[in-house]
Amino acid sequence: MPLGRLPAWLLLAPALLLLLGMFLVPIGWFLVASLQELGSLAEILEEADAVLLSGAVGGALINTLWISAVVTALVLVIGYPVSYAMSRASGLAFTLLLLCIVLPYFTSTIVRTYAWMVLLGRNGLINQLLLGLGLVSEPVQLLYNRTGVIIGMTYVLLPYMVLTLYAAMKAVDMRLLQAAESMGATPLQVFARVFMPLTLHGVVAGVLITFILALGFFVTPALMGGPGDMMIAMLIEREVELTQNWPGAALMTIVLLVVTLILYGLYSRFTTDEKGAMP
């Protein structure tokens, strides 16, 4: 039964109200109230200049972009073959793969992060294994530095990439690959000239969603990173909790929000493209 515009909006209304009440109103109120503390527009701009050009914000922003980029690249490299296997698997194999990918999702981020800390610590499983095999002579520092942050975030973000890629790969008509093969294409050519281009929009969508999510990460870098791994979300939290500098936090929030919205704009362009395939 086709729904008119009005009923569709009615169905969306509960979700929209929730979003309005729980997200837009609080963040709007936070931003307005915090910035009003500073006084006039000129004073706000002056403060913005000072805060945003300060070393702390610049450093955190660079950290955030760099960590997000590395994590996104890793997630893509690890996720692409997994998604491919999932899109070709059926029955029990598919169910097992899906469970492996999705099950950790149902555990809280904090629990998962602590589990990684057990694995990666100085006396953790991984270091014991490396020492036992004689690959290293002393424990490797895997926690409380950039390595720890990247490992932790890659793990948490992997399902988003895998599920996005899976959807794109599942939509590829297998008969096209068969056709390419019958036309003389080698397996590598079938992949590079047919499969890859047909899943490229999924790659772009997966990269954007992973990057967007990585930008706002807080728990994992806070628990698994060191002092040099301050990300923008952690800085915002510190401004609010520690230094009680609400106007400063508000200004940084705006920066994060703007970057995120720009990327989100790109993301929705790629995911709502009519055919889902790139011309």
Binding site: D173, R175, L176, Q178, A179, A180, E181, S182, M183, G184, A185, T186, V194, P197, L198, K275, A277, M278, P279
Partner: peptide, 20 residues
Amino acid sequence: VPPRGRGLGMVFQNYAIFPH
């Protein structure tokens, strides 16, 4: 011999036109 080694032309039921 795999399909690519047979040197055949083929027209598929659904045409199998590459959309990209």
